[in-house]
Write a protein that binds this DNA or RNA. Sequence first.
DNA 1: CAAGTTGTCTTGAATTATTCAAAACAACTG
DNA 2: CAGTTGTTTTGAATAATTCAAGACAACTTG
Lengths: 146, 146
Amino acid sequence: MTDAALADTLREAGLKVTEPRVAVLSALTDIPHSDADTIFGAVLPSLPGTSLQAVYGVLAALTTAGLLRKIEPAGSSALYERRIGDNHHHLVCTECGAVRDVDCVVGQAPCLTPSEAGGFTVHTAEVNFWGVCPDCQSALKQKSAD
Amino acid sequence: MTDAALADTLREAGLKVTEPRVAVLSALTDIPHSDADTIFGAVLPSLPGTSLQAVYGVLAALTTAGLLRKIEPAGSSALYERRIGDNHHHLVCTECGAVRDVDCVVGQAPCLTPSEAGGFTVHTAEVNFWGVCPDCQSALKQKSAD
DNA sequence: CAAGTTGTCTTGAATTATTCAAAACAACTG
DNA sequence: CAGTTGTTTTGAATAATTCAAGACAACTTG
């Protein structure tokens, strides 16, 4: 995705186009499920004057505008991804924290209406799967072999 | 639940029985879905010499022993509950952070096997519902009427 | 029941992720 | 091109949680 295309994305969302915003979108295209610090590291080479706070500001703006989705798996810092609008879920490695996308499980989400909402107005169902990623499985096997 | 019964619960889990532990279990029986600070406030009257760090230590020990479940909804601090062993889920109010238990939705959890685990070994599926609790619904209605 | 061992609690401080605030600055509007 | 609005920079503050060392208490063993 070119910077021009990313700029259009920003404009369409009613946001001003700035270098930090384009850079953050670009970084998240390459490395989804990244936290603020990782994104900061990714954009720093192209924006030497930027700061971590600026990244936080950009992430907040883009998330509010609906261009980013913020996920906060237990035990890790907030992660951001560009894949939005589809109700996909996440698979998180309990060993290393790696995150992978999972398409919504049973076609729609019939199972995701709480039987008894107790007066709550539910608007979102979030599903997280916890497990061990292939890499960590190998590592664990290796370790137990010692 | 009496303190003696709570003490037995601790012993059965292979843990030493101490005042702070009994107090924390007792507090969580009364006020589930509490964070460390709330629990600290609840046990302080009966344990004047205790500290927040002690509460954190107790919570960590009890969670490791399987007596507590730790939940970490996005945007709030870690919460603890005694209800364990059943795969229930949570309903979280996006306005005030209130948490309510929800029984597992479709009988078992047939919908909670990711279609494509991508090599991950999945051991847990976590479901969180986000919505607005009855109290906050009233409050919002009130506000919009102004 | 007494002494020892192991593990827990207390005290104090450090860390990490994140947010707040004010001034300098840049993007879109007309 | 100038103005307005909103963004970024800079610097500091906050909140939740964790780390570490010594004091202490619970269960075990004799």
